[in-house]
Design a protein around this nucleic acid. Structure first.
Length: 258
DNA sequence: ACTAATGTTGTAGG
DNA sequence: GCCTACAACATTAG
């Protein structure tokens, strides 16, 4: 559910409600969700005041007086305020004022505490808030794999990779380093446009994504290829295809994307 | 019953 | 280091 636009939507609603607040208590219901840090997360964060809430790629960074909480939503993670505990609730953060509940049926997400900044050191620059050089695309891998590689730039997932490649008219299997410089520049521009547009629409809700208030996004209504296999291309009418690239379902128009 | 699903990590091999 | 493929993580929906 969460790529950069969904995570950005969540961060924008978390920030005003968390910043300056204190974590009164914290509870990890499923230890698996704390998978990398060796810290006792509740022990480390309880009593601390939230300094800021930011984002790098798909990671949510909650800056505390000392250290950071880093949250990744995986495929099915949700952060909701004051929502009822469910069988899939994995963690609860009680703030002075509201409870932040983390649900994650598949448990692909993670919650980490670290003293220094952290875990995002393996990520490339943020896909939305950075100037991205087209040289980043000079790889032998298919362009779709490059867009999904978070160490090159961070935030694009399966939906926005497909939507960007369609808008740029590039075949997802095209070797990245064989895209001519002007088209590579154009693709970078399109990626950032698509992400920004999706943020304006509060993300895509294709299965279960909702923001911290339980609201769905709108951007799925504007998808041109993702989830539209067999439907006519909105530009040329050709039935859209679905193939596998970089081990992910990939939607594209065989006529518009070369 | 089987498959695929908005993601990441680790491993093995070329 | 780069690239590919696959398994693993765990659950649900079609």
């Amino acid at each position: 559910m969460p790529e950069l636009p969904e995570v950005e939507t969540i961060v924008r609603s978390l920030a005003p409600r968390l910043t300056g607040r204190h974590i009164v208590s914290a509870e990890i219901l499923k230890q698996r969700i704390v998978r990398y840090s060796k810290h006792d997360v509740p022990g480390a964060v309880t009593g601390q005041r939230v300094r800021e809430v930011t984002r790098h790629g798909k990671f949510i960074l909650i800056g505390l007086e000392r250290g950071f909480l880093t949250i990744h939503l995986g495929m099915t993670g949700q952060l909701r305020f004051d929502s009822p505990i469910t069988p899939h609730t994995r963690a609860i953060f009680q703030l002075d004022g509201a409870a932040l509940v983390y649900d994650d049926p598949r448990m692909f997400g993670s919650i980490e505490y670290s003293e220094a900044t952290d875990r995002t050191d393996r990520l490339g620059p943020d896909a939305l808030n950075s100037v991205l050089s087209p040289e980043l695309l000079r790889r032998k891998a298919p362009i779709k794999a490059v867009l999904l590689n978070q160490s090159i730039f961070a935030g694009v997932g399966n939906i926005y990779a497909d939507e960007s490649l369609f808008r740029a008219g590039i075949h997802p299997r095209r070797r990245a380093d064989r895209i001519a410089a002007p088209r590579a520049s154009r693709l970078i521009q399109v990626v950032q446009e698509v992400l920004a547009e999706a943020v304006e629409h509060r993300g895509s809700s294709v299965s279960d994504y909702v923001d911290t208030e339980g609201r769905k996004g709108d951007f799925q209504l504007r998808h041109r290829v993702y989830g539209r296999k067999g439907l006519p291309c909105l530009v040329c009418g050709t039935p859209l295809r679905k193939i596998v690239v970089a081990q992910r379902g990939t939607h594209y128009c065989p006529v518009c994307q070369r």
